[in-house]
Amino acid sequence: MTLEGRGIVCDYGPVRALAGVDLRAAGREILAIVGPNGAGKTTLLKVLSGERRPDHGEVTLNGTRVSGSDAAWRARIGLVSHRTGLYEKLTAIENLRFFAALHGLRRNGRKLTATLEAVGAGDLAGRRVETLSRGQRQRVALARSILHDPEILFLDEPFTGLDPEGAAGLEHALTARRHDGAVVVLVTHDLRRGLRLADRVVVLRRGRKVFDGEAAEDGAAEILDHFTAGAEAP
């Protein structure tokens, strides 16, 4: 399975957020998109997930063009972002049940409980989201994002505000998804974590791809150079 972006250009009015980015993400692989703030990381993720239509270029999955307006495509993807996207007044399990139903999964009580347990949130099922800590919420959010077994998982700064324990749990879940054969696309400004987790790294700077390669230890110095060069610019 290969998710591919070709020549992606994205404009916000006169401002060019992405200026012709190409990238590939394969199954059983975690692709990290890193870069300083304002590099266009989140815009790129939104284009890849189909949330934002690019002004030029296209996104394909195994060679077939994907579009956010296609329900079948949306059924195959999951998203974790720095905002949990949960309803505070509903309990964890009610949130899951609602999103599962939108995915067309029915009579799924056992599956939902199992998913919660898999992310270490089995004991939170009956609690309202408003009573949960940030780390607990993020675990429930992760459960919500994988309950339909997405083939492609997008993560947009998922570690923001997480305690070490929560971060470790999330990392574990990511590697588990990779093991299951999913494409995992991780957007983060945290280069160190990106390098540690990912198989491949793409560095963005001002809407352009400045590095694309294996996240091997010996290449780390070069990646760091590209990364900080962007960060120093005014």
């Binding site: 404009d11 009015g13 006169p14 060019r16 700077r205 352009r208 610019a233």
Partner: peptide, 13 residues
């Protein structure tokens, strides 16, 4: 506006 933005981006890159 587009051209100015492109010039700005080019100058910085």
């Amino acid at each position: 506006a587009r051209a100015e933005d492109a010039a700005l981006a080019g100058g910085l890159a």
